[in-house]
Amino acid sequence: MSLTPVHLQFIAIGGLWTIGLSAIAFIGGSIIGFALALARISPSPLVRRLAAGYIQIVQGTPLLVTLFLFYFGLAVIGLDRLPAIVAAGFGLVVYSSAFLAEIWRGCLESVPKTQWEAAECLALTRWQRMTRVILPQAMRIATAPTVGFLVQIVKNTSLASVVGFVELAQAGKLVNNTIFEPFTVFIVVAAFYFVICYPLSAWSRSLERKLNVGRR
């Protein structure tokens, strides 16, 4: 048996699910990650420690294990009839929130302290200092590493297959189970990943270049 258009279509749909799951992970992870990044530089030590604890636990757990925990954990609390994308989505959102939080905390902290101080001396509130002075500068620094991490998210969605979610990698595996042409099939799968990831890394690189030029 060989690869037919039907197989290709099946893999392509897997690719769309990969994009969808990546989008969920990125959007959800951004919202929670942003709040966590702010919490990490909060004036309150308790808030800082809580955020740091969450990030450490998530970063210290393999994504595979996080996904299993959500899959079986949701079943334990009686939500076992939920589609696989829910467990996969939750797991990936939690995973990306922790990493994005750390990336963004670094960006926020790389804005010189003197900028905070200058804004403080102009009688701006803490919120105004953050939104009008610090964030706009941190966002410029954050763009390139954030897009870079987006590529990681896309690739890591392949782990969602362990909870039965049929994304790109799992679609390839299923096709291979029927035609037993692993090399051909996974070359095609790899090509799909490349088509999704390449524009992102190219974008990230060009952003980085632009930023460096602006610095000079």
Partner: peptide, 23 residues
């Protein structure tokens, strides 16, 4: 301060207008 500490993402006028509009 010795190191000026202007806000690099804002124009000169925006640097000056920030506090009066915010505060």
């Amino acid at each position: 301060f010795q190191s000026y500490n202007l806000f690099p993402h804002l124009t000169v006028a925006q640097n000056i207008m920030l506090a009066p509009t915010c505060v």
